[in-house]
Design a protein around this nucleic acid. Structure first.
Lengths: 215, 215
DNA sequence: ATGAAAACTATCCGAAGGGATAGAGGACCT
DNA sequence: AGGTCCTCTATCCCTTCGGATAGTTTTCAT
């Protein structure tokens, strides 16, 4: 059994992959970071792909039409949308386009597990909040971003390593010693990390990394 | 429906409360910090109390006998033990005393949710590791603490406020401005926080706070 | 083979963090 | 009335962080 996690940042992919594999043994998780990579997997031979977790804001995504493209490219597969924060329109649009559900990234694991189970069973999942926001239009329907602490861009392996240590309270000097590189190099990496995950400093970065499951 | 969380530090109570309420709508969570407070709730009128999450190392607790006392005081209620780290004896003792389960504080949310569901359904939950440690005696059975990143001591309300902002990436100056106090005061509070939660710096503190559910 | 990206190093600078010490006011409990 | 705890403030000192700029090397894909 296979599932695809299509999201532009590896931290979330890892976290989501872990959740899935906890729940579904014998699951092969395929991670992709861009829309074209995802579409390239359509029609692949091998075990059937049961599930696609699709980030709303992945490079290449452009709203309803794109979702429809994906749904059509994988006619046998349940496509579930995933996003950090979502406008009502986004959700409606996604369901109209054939998505089987909408999972906020903030979804607690248990609900996540339940939602996945429901979707795999052929149902569809919508967060409870959807009812309250019935028809309500957010200030900026198209881009309801900021994403409350998610990781917007790819982190390199080195950066993931360093981020993990940072979140454990290591200083730059300690990280450098541990990895056998100079402190300045660590600082350089961290500058990039802060930029990419949009954190103001290492404390916020630590929080974001922890929330994303990188412990 | 009501549940009691009996634990000596509020951060964990909050986190556990959130987890429970996410899972069980219409749940009223009662938080207590000491054993006597807990026992004072026995026989209270009102909605039935379905669940008690009981910290092994709460002020007043003294092992198996105490657990038995609690179980007898709440005959209609499922009592589940909670602890940061536990010796085999503790677990065995707790089960013998009538506890319905044992939940490590490090339990991932999903397992936590599953465990709660099992316990509420009348079953009992034991962590898988229990099997491996069958009969093995830890170096210090009574106090097997250190607690791997949990919050060992009470944080004052002010400290919780500050810790939350810290984890959001606020600088001391910003926190001070927001709370209308001087930066030095914030620094003082943070020094206390780092001591109490045993963090080396604010990055680690942010990680710990986030893991504990204080976002 | 050329170019892009990742990784590494260096120096300089101002801002922020972390620790120690010392003191003051208020709330609450006994 | 005294004690304890929380809260707030101040000064001094050194470390760590975060950023800019500039450069080398390696690796990998087109």
């Amino acid at each position: 059994m296979r599932a695809i996690i299509a999201d532009d940042h590896p931290l979330y992919r890892e976290a989501a992959g872990l959740r899935l594999q906890r729940q579904l043994h014998d699951l092969e998780v395929i991670e992709v970071g861009r829309l074209d990579e995802l579409l390239a997997l359509a029609g692949t031979e091998g075990e059937p792909i049961e599930l696609i977790l699709l980030d709303l804001r992945m490079p290449g995504m452009q709203g309803g039409q794109t979702i429809e493209t994906v749904v059509e490219a994988f006619p046998e597969t349940a496509v579930a949308l995933v996003s950090g924060a979502a406008a009502y329109e986004d959700i409606k649009c996604a369901i109209d386009a054939g998505a089987k559900g909408f999972l906020p990234k903030t979804l607690p694991s248990k609900l996540f597990a339940g939602a996945i189970a429901v979707i795999l069973a052929g149902g569809s999942y919508l967060p409870a909040e959807t009812l309250q926001m019935n028809g309500k239009v957010s200030a900026n329907p198209a881009i309801d971003d900021i994403d409350a602490g998610a990781i917007p861009d790819e982190l390199t392996p080195r950066q993931l390593q360093i981020l993990a240590q940072l979140a454990s309270g290591a200083t730059n000097k300690e990280i450098g010693r541990g990895l056998g590189i100079a402190e300045v190099t660590v600082k350089m990496h961290i500058r990039q990390i802060l930029r990419k995950i949009n954190a103001r400093n290492r404390a916020e970065a630590a929080s974001i990394a922890t929330r994303a499951g990188l412990i």
